[in-house]
Structures are given as structure tokens and as C-alpha cells.
Amino acid sequence: MSTRVISSPRTTGEPGERILRYSLAERIHHWVGFLFYFYCLITGLAFWSPYMYWLAALVGGGPTARFWHPWFGVAFTISMFWMYAMWDRDMRITDADRRWKAAIKSYIENDDQNLPPEGRFNYGQKLFFWVMFYGIILLLISGIGLWFVEGIPSSLRWLRYLSVTVHVIAALATIGAFIIHVYMGTAMVRGGFTSIIRGEVSTAWAKTHHRLWYEQVTRRQSAGR
């Protein structure tokens, strides 16, 4: 099967055609973010539960995990803001999203023919992005409260309680979103995983899952002809 990426100004819509969904920069940012988040996730879970403390051993033991967890958190925050700069405009909630959201049951039940067309990202993906974005802001602020052990005087000890509560709630929210994200990206939406590695999707994929985006890209392509 010949693989043609739409970088040339023409699209034919023939079955074997591939279309560029994620630029190299986008893919790299995604995986850098993943690395930082995943480190925070497994070390955080190690601190969270004695039954998962062994996870800390995977990254060099408890004290090492404790040392690096906040730093990786800071790194993830930076990477998240980078993704924000890259995707902010794509991630705004639009009218198409609202229509799609109203029909989300069809999406869950894989009844995609009945879904209103979506743009580059669907409502669910955008929701994931914003949960991560606001989640990391909360995690950073509360994480700083946990980070500097001597930084909080005993008269302000309520700050410790607040920090740990916010950190746990925000972490759990991102973990929930993360589970769904990984499931969708690997098992449920086939082709999604390759797209975030190699960057390309088939035109059929694009038409099925992100029709408005597909139309937009192909229109742009042909306009530039």
C-alpha cells in the first residue's frame, strides 16, 4: 500500500492515503509530557499506599523517589505549559463540541455514525487536556506545600493539611482522566496510538473521527494549490 502524506497540495481521497495529524514537535512534546507524568504517577502512588510502595523501588528507592518526584512534577508543569502554547487554540470548546457532547452516548457505544462531526480534537480529548492542565496547576501549588518540609511553621500547619488534600484530589482526578486517555489511545481508537508516534492517520480515520478537521485540512491543502 502506497503511503502518501498530505504535504503535497493535493488530496485524492483514495484509500491508502495518509494524512499528517501530529507534527514531530507535537509528538515529542506528548511523549516528554508522558514521561514526566508517568514518573510522578508511579512515585506518587508509592507514597500514597503501602501496597504500592514497591513502585518506588523501580526508580531507585523511597528517598530517591522523594527527591525526584517534585522535580519531575515541575518538569511536567513546564511540559504542560508547552503543550498549552501548542494546543490552546485547538482545545477551546466549540459549538461542534457541544453538539457532540449531547450525543456522547453514541460515542461510548461505538455508534459513531450518529455523531455530529468533530474538529481536530473531540470534546472528550479536550476535557482530558483541561483536566490535566488545571490538575497540574493544583498539583504544583499543593506540591510546593508538601515539598519544603521545614518551610511551613507549626502555626501554619493547616497549610500542610490543605496541601495534602488538594494534592490527593487533583492527583486522583488526573489519574482517572489518564486511565481513560490511555485506554482510548491504545485499545479503543485504533490508529490513535500510531498517530502520536508516527504522526499520520489514514484519511478514512480522519473522516470517521475528526471530520471537520479533515475537511479543514484538505480545504487548506487545496486552497494552497
Binding site: 481521497g13 484509500p15 461505538n110 459513531d112 455514525q113 485499545a187 485504533r190 478514512a204 470517521t208
Partner: peptide, 8 residues
Amino acid sequence: GPKEIHPP
């Protein structure tokens, strides 16, 4: 199961 790509 996984999502189908609908036939164009």
C-alpha cells in the same frame, strides 16, 4: 470493543 472506521 474498538471503534470501526466507517467505510467512506
